[in-house]
Design a protein around this nucleic acid. Sequence first.
DNA 1: CTGTTGTATGATATCGATTTCACTTTAATA
DNA 2: TATTAAAGTGAAATCGATATCATACAACAG
Lengths: 323, 323
Amino acid sequence: MNIAQIAELAGVSKAAVSRYFNNGYISREKREAIQRVVEETGYRPSLQAQTLRTKKTKLIGVIVPKIASASIGKIVEGILSVINEKGYQMLLAVTQNDPEKELEYLTAFDEKQVDGVILAATVLGTAHKQILKKLSVPVVIVGQQLSGYNCVYHDDYHASYDLTKRMIETGRSSLGYIGATQQDKAVGEERYRGFCDGMRHMGYGDQAERMVTASFTVASGYEKAKELLECYKDLNGIICATDSIAAGAAQYLHEHGGGLSSQVIVAGQGDSDMSRVTNPPFMTVHYFYEESGETAVRILMEILEEKKEALQEVKLGYYIVEP
Amino acid sequence: MNIAQIAELAGVSKAAVSRYFNNGYISREKREAIQRVVEETGYRPSLQAQTLRTKKTKLIGVIVPKIASASIGKIVEGILSVINEKGYQMLLAVTQNDPEKELEYLTAFDEKQVDGVILAATVLGTAHKQILKKLSVPVVIVGQQLSGYNCVYHDDYHASYDLTKRMIETGRSSLGYIGATQQDKAVGEERYRGFCDGMRHMGYGDQAERMVTASFTVASGYEKAKELLECYKDLNGIICATDSIAAGAAQYLHEHGGGLSSQVIVAGQGDSDMSRVTNPPFMTVHYFYEESGETAVRILMEILEEKKEALQEVKLGYYIVEP
DNA sequence: CTGTTGTATGATATCGATTTCACTTTAATA
DNA sequence: TATTAAAGTGAAATCGATATCATACAACAG
């Protein structure tokens, strides 16, 4: 079934059928004739033919470091909810945190495959920026702030700062920190900076360097908690960059906490289910992950619909979740 | 940059350039001339034009109930690893467990948008089967067994059976079960059947109806554990259909376990991080989720490459994970 | 009555590739 | 040497839509 056959059956030209689907000038009689034929045959215009002619694929490319992650899962669900509502579909690429793959997909998507790209990267190096500059399709970065680009991100600094302050207020003054790679500006750098400034402003600035770096897994949190506690034996609290790390640290603590001088509690960031199932549950920060995905798509749609051309940077809030 | 311009620059016909990219007859001189021009210009053939002509989109449609889930995340990662290796890309749709959306995406994908579909549904009703029959693109179902269709699934029955047996062997003879909706044949029905038969064969068949049904969340596991324990006060073990449910149950137990007559432990299924961060960690079953995703793509590829036409049903194994 | 505007229409070119077809040249075989 | 097969080539048709353009008719203003 193609447009020519429909035109023939309805006794009109191909152009008329095309106009029927694209709200062009068309008389009532022809409109009804075409409608009848379309309903009888169940005809739907070919998307590939439309794409070839119009250069719109109705596809959004989404690049994420991994998918089996609570926070990224939420971002993707946010993205999807708006994408579908707008009649687009999602092309998903996962990079396993491999920067080369990231660049590869970025260029692959750019070759007219998608109308826009949403990039959730952990590390944005100079190679990324160079490619981003050259892209012919609009991009929105989610989870990281990058000047000169459309992005929606979280207030990692103040969240981490407030979390630190809250921990100290609840009586935990001897704190350590398990962070993420400093290459990750949002989760690594900003959250650690929030911790440092929180410590400093509360009068414990000298302790801010009690810090180790973990990768984004529970197992790594377990290992690094051990490392940190062996190094600083008088800790009574550990703040972690993510909930996964915190869960690993919590696991270490209820296995080996008995041998320590004082009871140690942990805090995480991300408000995942993990924070509620450890014993005891731990304090965490709620970031608006779904909303960040939704907002990223909205920005992209505004660009695609040419409502706005100007750069947008959106910073989302947070709230502390007490155990 | 289109094929005509490349042909012009290389001093050959469009057909020659097309052959260059598709391994057709072409002399060495022309091949080299074209190669030079292609490298200089960075030309890449338009995918949409290719699609229009060849009817191959190089896209695989993947339909999942939700994405922020550990097991489904693993399946998707498995799918992606093979898909990319084969030069395909993934169109992802999430149904939020809404059967209507499931059917909607199934038909949307069918309209020549994708070369094949992978469906990870929890519930497969008659409406699904009807649509599945009519699809013009090949489908592989993952996570559920469905006779007459290509599918790759897990040995839910024996896994649950062995888990039950193992719990009884470790001294837990007064067991209860928190299951999932019976509409989900794999996770709901089969896993409960495994529990029942395990109980029966170990001589506790009369206790098999100590069962409540939860939804797939931690919070629901918490609620249902409470319900189950209020109803059967002498339980010393609870087996759950998923790790999320088990984590919720574990959370309830360390909040209210003190008031019970005996110490109660839980067991889950899915081998997620959750099983290791609760206190105490719980027994669980490892299902090969990544592998199921990978296998599903392999089956699809075999069909697309026309190596095999025959129906394939693949049942994957499992192993018990002691805490 | 002439000129303009808005509505309505279909023929045709176009998007950018692949595929068919007819044809030439070269190599291998009888 | 004659015959056949294989290698190599480009013109043109094709995939299925949309966009442009020329044209026609009605209503209406001057």
